[in-house]
Amino acid sequence: MSDLSSLIEKLGNIHGPVREIDALLHIAAYPDFGARMEFNPPRYVRFEDVWLKNRADHLNHANNVSDWWKVPAYTASVDAAMSLARHVLPGCECELTDLYGISRATLNHEAGQFYGTSEINSLPIAICLSILRALQQKGSSNE
């Protein structure tokens, strides 16, 4: 829970797309993702551990699929942020507002309503904030 609170704070303080935040969002939504390390023999480690050391951009799913994956640009792309929202809250409805330089996103789901606001006029960041609040509530209801 505190990790999500910290990520919400980081996301609320950025002034544009940030790849590190994209990776941390991906880790929050897909905790079983791992990075493929080039050792002999190759081994797989949790992406979270690798990201903090070398900011690797390429991911490989932890089930040892050989294809490389990239972390989507969640903080830059409405499409990427919405795909993440649909993963976290399947069947959710999203209301987006971009008015007077402030972007807002509301995710409506049977689990509740989750809000995100971006003062820098970024719909992707607003969507990502609402996603993190949904994950935070899911985590607290599971405890």
Rank of each mutant, 00 (worst) to 15 (best):
M1V: 13
S2T: 14
S2H: 13
D3P: 01
L4Q: 04
S5Q: 09
S6V: 06
I8A: 07
E9T: 12
E9K: 15
K10Y: 10
K10C: 10
L11Y: 07
G12H: 06
N13D: 11
I14K: 09
H15S: 11
H15K: 14
G16M: 06
P17H: 13
V18I: 13
V18R: 11
R19Y: 09
E20N: 10
D22M: 00
A23D: 00
L24D: 02
L24W: 01
L24Q: 05
L25W: 00
L25A: 01
L25D: 01
L25E: 01
L25H: 01
I27G: 00
A29H: 08
G34I: 02
A35T: 09
A35R: 07
R36M: 08
R36V: 04
E38G: 09
P42C: 05
P42R: 04
P42K: 06
R46C: 08
F47V: 03
E48T: 05
E48S: 14
E48L: 04
D49M: 02
L52F: 13
L52P: 09
K53A: 14
R55T: 06
R55M: 07
L59M: 12
N60E: 08
H61C: 15
H61E: 12
N63L: 12
N63Q: 13
V65A: 12
S66A: 04
S66T: 05
W68P: 10
W69Y: 14
W69I: 13
V71Y: 00
P72A: 01
A73N: 11
T75C: 09
A76L: 02
S77F: 02
V78K: 13
V78W: 07
D79K: 10
A80H: 00
A81P: 05
M82D: 10
M82L: 15
S83C: 03
S83L: 03
A85T: 01
A85F: 00
P90I: 00
P90D: 01
E95A: 12
E95I: 10
T97A: 13
D98R: 14
L99V: 10
Y100P: 02
Y100V: 06
Y100W: 07
G101L: 02
G101H: 02
R104Q: 15
A105W: 00
A105T: 02
T106M: 04
L107W: 01
H109I: 03
E110V: 01
E110T: 03
A111R: 08
A111L: 12
A111S: 14
A111K: 09
Q113F: 02
Q113C: 07
Q113W: 02
Q113S: 10
Y115M: 08
Y115D: 09
G116Y: 01
E119P: 08
E119S: 11
I120F: 14
I120M: 12
N121C: 12
S122A: 11
L123T: 08
P124S: 06
I125C: 08
I125L: 08
I125N: 08
L129W: 05
L129Y: 07
S130G: 11
I131E: 01
L132D: 04
L132Q: 04
A134N: 00
A134H: 01
L135V: 09
L135P: 11
L135S: 09
L135K: 10
Q137R: 15
K138S: 11
S140L: 13
S140I: 12
S140A: 11
S141T: 13
S141G: 09
N142P: 07
